[in-house]
Design a protein around this nucleic acid. Structure first.
Lengths: 238, 238
DNA sequence: CGCGCCTTTGACGCAACCCTGACGCGTGGC
DNA sequence: GCCACGCGTCAGGGTTGCGTCAAAGGCGCG
C-alpha cells in the first residue's frame, strides 16, 4: 500500500533510523532500501535531531538506548516542532519504559528482538495514517489567479510554465500554503523550514520571501498573495 | 503544536471495546471509565460495526478472536468509511497475523496477556495523533454585528475587508476577546500585553483602546463593544 | 580543479510602530 | 462652585522592523 492507486508520481517515503548498534542499522537500511524507502541514519541523539531538521523524514525509527542522550529526550526534541510518526525500538520490556516513551509522543513501541516483517508493517501503518494529516486534510492543488501550487507533485505552475524553486524556497512556500489564510509567525516559519534551533534569524525570511515574491507575484513590490504582517509573521492569501 | 489552553470544555473521548471474553471487557471498561472515557462494548463483529456507525467512537479496541467473523474483516468494515484509530488485541503472537491486521488498516497491535498501563498508553497515543485530523483545528471565530475576529488565523474582518492591526493592537484585542463579556482589569491587560513588569502605565491602554475603537467600532466615540469600566478595566461585548 | 547554484551574511534606506507628553472633557468629592 | 482625577484624543520623535541589493561562503557536479 505504498503508492496511491492513481497515476500520481509518489515521492519516496523518507525514513530516519536512529540506533547506535551498527548491525541493526545495517539490517534496517538494507530492508528499507530494498522496499524503495529513502533512508537516513544517525547513531546518536544530537545527529538525529540535526538530521531530522535538515531532511524532514516522513517517519522516524528510534532506538531508546543512545550513547549521548536519553531516547525520551530525543522524542521530546522532535515533538517540540514536528508531528512526524516516531516508532520506538527498545530492548527494555518494562511497561514503565513503554508508557514513558508513548506519553512523550512516540507513536509505537517495539521490543527487541523484533521481527522485520512486523516492524515494516508497523512502519507502513504509521506512514499510512500520517499521510492525510501531513497533507493538511485537503487540497493538494492550491490555485490563485496567477499561479498554481501542487503540494503532492512539489511543483509550481505560472502562466503555463513550471517555476523553478530552490529547496528552501519550496519549503517556505509549502508551510505558507498549508496554512492558507492563516497568519504564520516568523518563529514558526523559521523552525519549520530551517530547524528547531532557529527562531530569531528573521533576515532569512526577508530574503526568501523576496525571492518567492519575485518568482510568483505579478508585482513583487506590492504583493497580493504573500502578505507581511509587521512584527508578527507572514500570511498566504489565495 | 501549541494548542491553546483556553477554557474549551473538552468532550470526553469515546472508546468502542470489541471482545467476546467478558472478563477482558469488564477489566477494560472499568479502567477506561475510571479515566473518564466514555465506553461502548460489543461482543461480536456485527454488533461492533453497528455500534461504530451509530456512536462514532474516537478510538476502537478490537480483539481479533470473535465468534461471528474474522477480526480482520471488522477492520476492513471500519476502514471502508472511517479513519478512527483501531487498536488490535490478540492472543496470537504470529508475525503474519500482526502484519495482516496492520496492513488491513489497524493502527496498533497488542498481544495478550497485556499490561493495562501499556494498553492505556498506546490508546492515548492513538487518540492524541488522531486529534487534530479528526475534527479539531476548528476556526475560532468570534462575531459581532460589525466585525469578525478569527483567533486562529489572527485576522479581523469588517464589512468584507480585512482590518490591519499592529502587533500590540492584536495582542490587546486577543486578550479582550478571549474574555468576552468578562471585565479585564487594567493591570491584567498591561501585564499580558506589555509584560509582567508593567501594571500602572494606564496611558498605554488609553492610546491603544482608542486605536482599536477607531478601527473596529462604528462610532468610536460611543463604543458598543469595547466598554470602559472606569477605574477598573475594560470589557469586550459581542 | 573549476564552475555554478544555493545559502548565508552584511549594509542601507524607508516606512511603520511604539512611546511620550500635552490638552480637553466629564465626573465625583470637598 | 472649585478642584482632583481618570479617560479620550492628538501629534511628534525615537526606534524597530522590513525590503532590497550585493557579495562572500559552501556544496555538489562535471
Amino acid at each position: 500500500m505504498l503508492s496511491a492507486a492513481d497515476g500520481t508520481p509518489q515521492a519516496p517515503t523518507r525514513v530516519l533510523v536512529i540506533d547506535d548498534e551498527p548491525q541493526i542499522v545495517r539490517a534496517l537500511v538494507i530492508n528499507l532500501k530494498a522496499r524503495k524507502y529513502e533512508v537516513d541514519a544517525a547513531h546518536d541523539g544530537a545527529t538525529a535531531l540535526r538530521l531530522a531538521a535538515a531532511r524532514h523524514p516522513d517517519v522516524v525509527v528510534l532506538d531508546l538506548g543512545l550513547p549521548d542522550m536519553d531516547g525520551v529526550e530525543v522524542i521530546r526534541g522532535l515533538r517540540g516542532w514536528t508531528r512526524v510518526p516516531i516508532l520506538v525500538l527498545s530492548a527494555r520490556h518494562s511497561s514503565d519504559e513503554k508508557v514513558e516513551a508513548l506519553d512523550a509522543g512516540a507513536d509505537d513501541y517495539v521490543t527487541k528482538p523484533f521481527g522485520m516483517d512486523e516492524l515494516l508493517a508497523r512502519l507502513r501503518a504509521a506512514v499510512r495514517r500520517a499521510e492525510p494529516a501531513g497533507g493538511g486534510e485537503g487540497e493538494v492543488l492550491v490555485e490563485t489567479d496567477e499561479f498554481t501550487v501542487d503540494l503532492a507533485a512539489k511543483k509550481v505552475n505560472r502562466a503555463g510554465k513550471d517555476v523553478r524553486l530552490t529547496p528552501t524556497e519550496w519549503h517556505l512556500l509549502e508551510v505558507l500554503v498549508r496554512n492558507t489564510g492563516r497568519l504564520v509567525s516568523q518563529k514558526q516559519l523559521l523552525q519549520e523550514v530551517w530547524g528547531p534551533s532557529y527562531g530569531t534569524e528573521t533576515n532569512y525570511l526577508r530574503v526568501y520571501m523576496a525571492q518567492l515574491r519575485r518568482k510568483l507575484e505579478a508585482d513583487p513590490s506590492h504583493p497580493r498573495h504573500f502578505v507581511t504582517e509587521p512584527g508578527m509573521g507572514y500570511r498566504f492569501e489565495r
